[in-house]
Design a protein around this nucleic acid. Structure first.
Length: 777
RNA sequence: GGGCGCGUAGCUCAGCGGCAGAGCACUCGCUUCACACGCGAGGGGUCACAGGUUCAAUCCCUGUCGCGCCCA
């Protein structure tokens, strides 16, 4: 974190960190201005300079006229502005009646025009190439040059060239040897009076009054005056509304100016090559992998990085200037003095460069500077390279790419094996949160309302495939309810004496219900682990949620009630109690990554009775649950848990028609439970359905409910007929598929088999429904 | 202008070749002895549009429209 981050955020993050359960080692907190990290910054700067990869150059930079500093390309953000395009007429020097029309969105820059470019093939202007134009208002003579930069399709086809105030014009100017005329001060005011660059081309070197009045004006005020002048002199051809992107400083929010200054640059290309190689060869993997394309696109087109800043805070650049301005880059002034003395042949007075480094320069060193580099520390040996970096996708270039460049350059290997790029949290309308817009959702507010666990779970559940998250409070609330649900389940366990039992072995349980839930728990543990390992946190969170609510609470707890709440003690009851306690421990473990507080508390509370815990849940092992799947238990509980068994009415008789011995046995074991689920008064068996009963078909079993006088038999008939028709449709579709010879020839066997089973099931079901219909009548 | 991505239930989003899913919202019924932040039962989708590939397309390909983001 840079120094400005220190000041603005430092008080806040430690407050948030514990609630978000960032597992931070606070003794290891580092800050880029710490002495150790400053040593690293100096060393890197000096080393890169020695290798010729840091140099000083006079170029156009993105200049922030409010903060009065250069900024890097990445700190510039284009903002769509509804501006205007002004068209000015520039008269030819030797024939003022002939005028060239040029368009501009920044009229005040015309003071620095040193040429006009037209496309070499443009028939309108071709004949004027090589001629001179007298720059209106200023009087300077400037040439018409042929350059393909000018787009004949746009505007008039001729563009004014201001090499000192526009990046494209700078390049055009270089190609045609046009002079650079700077007309702006650091705070973007016009400076022309006594400005030799400006006055050089002016006849007599003396400024007319109308010009002198512009001197010292703010750029926008000057713009108005220049436009007014052109209008007065009949040289304003037209004004068109024009929406275009204007570069703004991302911190200051004001339009930046391309401005000619001396700055320090890092030649990042060699480092970029090394970083790209690391990704290409799989030594660093980006997740999601689609990000790699964007990474390469940027890295392949990378430009020199302007790292000097004219600010009062930051790492001062380790460069000292001799009397003639020669820079000496060294770790300290003494070393610089040695070099200077050697250079001049005698000691000289040195002056240190007042500029500081871009904060991202020191941040780029983070993976090794924090571990003590350039010292050879044990931490460095142990923790570099790191395994995984988790960060927001929007700082891929600012930070991640630069850490990779510096890491490969100075440590010889890429700093991370995996980089997880997640989305950023946006507001509910999908807008990027920003302090200036004022739509920042403070996590502490959400936490106050719904709890840290609910918020953390929400973020995990919504963090799919690196997409941005529109934070949905409804989701947060839903997961708060989930947390409450777990507490209530734990309370149920407590009320029923479900205590942990020493040496409980999930493989030894005898009760079908318990075998079943343990198998489900094992499946859930596998799914959650797989999700986390694949960095698919939403899949992991989902799997945990489904198991806890959908399986454990909705079914297991319900089905265990008859056993737990029966009078007296039994082996089955003991086993079920132990299983409940065991599964709650599993739940705490599975959910701990997503709901650390609640689960830790649950772990502690459940640890009060039974065998002593060895420590905190966060230090406990991931549940190792293998060999617990049990197909027979799954089938049996599947039948018992069938939602469709009942009639939706209270206290009816349930009759299983023509049930097999197996089914009779299952029903025998679960009678109380099934009756309870189905709201049935009792359950019986018969070879034929009683007259006037509603009948349903569930898992191949026909269940009849004598409903004479209870329901509308006509409505029941209608319901059954509707279901028949639905099945007809399904059968028709599948039959057509199976009749297709190509399908039979080309589809995989299991798919064909699946379809055959589907049709068989549908037909069997239809038969039973038809049977039911005749009984009903 | 170039690149990347997204258009799936009213909303927020999963799924990504072989019967369209979740949460929230909605409708109906429940003071069921863990939980109304709950329980049960439902309704709701030509998976943006148009072509193509395939036995089979929400999923793959091409184009169109709409919406984001990144880089010029």
């Amino acid at each position: 974190m840079g120094v400005e981050g220190r000041e603005r955020r430092h008080h806040r993050q430690p407050a948030q960190a514990p609630w978000c359960l960032l597992r931070l080692e606070s003794r290891a907190e580092r800050f880029t201005m710490d002495p150790g990290l400053s040593d690293a910054v100096l060393k890197v700067f000096v080393e890169l300079h020695r290798k010729g990869m840091i140099y000083k150059a006079r170029r156009l930079v993105n200049w922030d006229p409010k903060l009065l500093t250069a900024i890097s390309d990445l700190e510039v953000e284009p903002r769509e502005v509804k501006g205007q395009m002004w068209y000015f007429d520039y008269p030819l020097a030797d024939d003022p009646e002939v005028k060239i029309t040029v368009g501009t969105t920044r009229p005040e820059t015309m003071l620095g025009d040193t040429g006009i470019a037209v496309h070499p093939e443009d028939e309108r202007w071709k004949r004027l190439i090589g001629k001179m134009v007298r720059l209106p208002l200023v009087g300077r003579l400037i040439p018409v040059v042929a350059d393909a930069y000018s787009d004949p399709e746009k505007g008039s086809g001729a563009v004014k060239i201001t090499p000192a105030h526009d990046f494209n014009d700078f390049e055009v100017g270089k190609r045609h040897n046009l002079p650079l005329v700077n007309v702006l001060t650091a705070d973007a005011r016009i400076t022309i009076d006594g400005n030799p660059d400006f006055t050089t081309g002016i006849p007599g070197g003396v400024l007319a009054d109308e010009l002198r009045h512009l001197d010292g004006l703010d750029r926008f005020e000057a713009r108005k005056r220049v436009v007014a002048w052109f209008e007065e002199h009949g040289l304003l051809q037209k004004i068109e509304p024009n929406a275009h992107a204007v570069p703004h400083g991302d911190r200051s929010g004001v339009p930046i100016e391309p401005w000619l200054t001396d700055q320090w640059y890092v030649d990042v290309r060699p480092m970029a090559e090394k970083a790209m190689a690391a990704v290409r060869e799989g030594r660093t993997r980006l997740h999601p992998s689609e990000r790699e394309k964007i990474f390469f696109q940027w890295m392949e087109n990378i430009e020199p990085w302007c790292v000097s800043r004219q600010l009062w805070w930051g790492h001062q650049i380790p460069a000292w200037y001799g009397p003639d301005g020669t820079p000496f880059v060294a770790l300290d002034e003494v070393a610089a003095q040695v070099e200077a003395t050697a250079h001049y042949g005698a000691p000289v007075k040195l002056e240190r460069d007042p500029d500081v480094l871009d904060t991202w320069f020191s941040s780029a060193l983070w993976p090794f500077s924090t571990l003590g580099w350039p010292q050879d520390t044990p931490e460095l040996a142990k923790f570099y390279p790191t395994s995984t970096l988790v960060t927001a996708a929007d700082i891929l270039f600012f930070w991640v790419a630069r850490m990779m460049m510096m890491g490969t350059e100075f440590m010889g290997q890429t700093p991370f094996a995996d980089v997880i790029l997640h989305g950023i949290v946006r507001d509910e309308k999908g807008k990027k949160m920003s302090k200036t817009t004022g739509n920042v959702i403070d996590p502490l507010t959400v936490i106050d309302q719904y709890g840290a666990d609910a918020m953390r779970f929400t973020l995990a559940a919504m963090a799919s495939s690196g997409r941005d998250i529109k934070l949905s409070m409804a989701r947060v609330e839903g997961y708060r309810n989930f947390a409450t649900k777990i507490w209530n389940a734990a309370r149920f366990a407590e009320m029923n004496g479900c205590l942990r039992v020493a040496g409980f072995d999930p493989h030894m349980v005898c009760e079908t219900l318990n075998q079943w839930v343990l198998g489900e728990a094992a499946r859930a543990a596998r799914e959650v682990a797989a999700g986390i390992e694949a960095y698919r946190f939403n899949d992991a969170a989902d799997a945990a949620y489904r198991f806890v609510w959908g399986t454990f609470c909705d079914w297991y707890v319900e089905l265990s009630k008859p056993v737990l709440q029966a009078e007296g003690d039994s082996a089955a009851k003991d086993e079920t109690r132990a299983t409940v306690a065991f599964v709650i421990d599993v739940i705490a473990s599975l959910l701990h990554p997503f709901m650390p507080f609640m689960t830790e508390e649950l772990w502690a509370v459940k640890g009060e009775a039974g065998p002593a815990r060895t420590g905190l849940l966060c230090h406990a092992d991931w549940p190792e649950l293998t060999g617990l799947e049990n197909a027979a238990a799954e089938a049996e509980i599947g039948f018992v848990g069938e939602r469709d068994l009942g009639s939706g009415l209270q206290q009816v008789l349930l009759v299983l028609v023509g049930a097999s011995d197996g089914t009779r046995a299952i029903v025998g074991r679960w009678e109380a439970m099934i009756a309870r689920q189905a709201r049935a008064s009792s359950i019986g068996f018969a070879e034929n359905a009683p007259p006037q009963s509603a009948q349903i078909v569930v898992r191949g079993e026909t269940i009849a409910m004598p409903l004479a006088g209870l329901i509308d038999l006509g409505a029941e008939t209608l319901r059954l007929n509707k279901e028949l028709a639905k099945l007809d449709g399904e059968i028709g579709g599948v039959e057509r598929k199976l009749a297709n010879t190509e399908f039979i020839a080309k589809a995989p066997e299991e798919v064909i088999e699946e379809n055959r089973e589907r049709i068989a099931e549908a037909r069997a079901r239809q038969a039973k429904i038809r049977d039911a219909l005749t009984r009903l009548g």
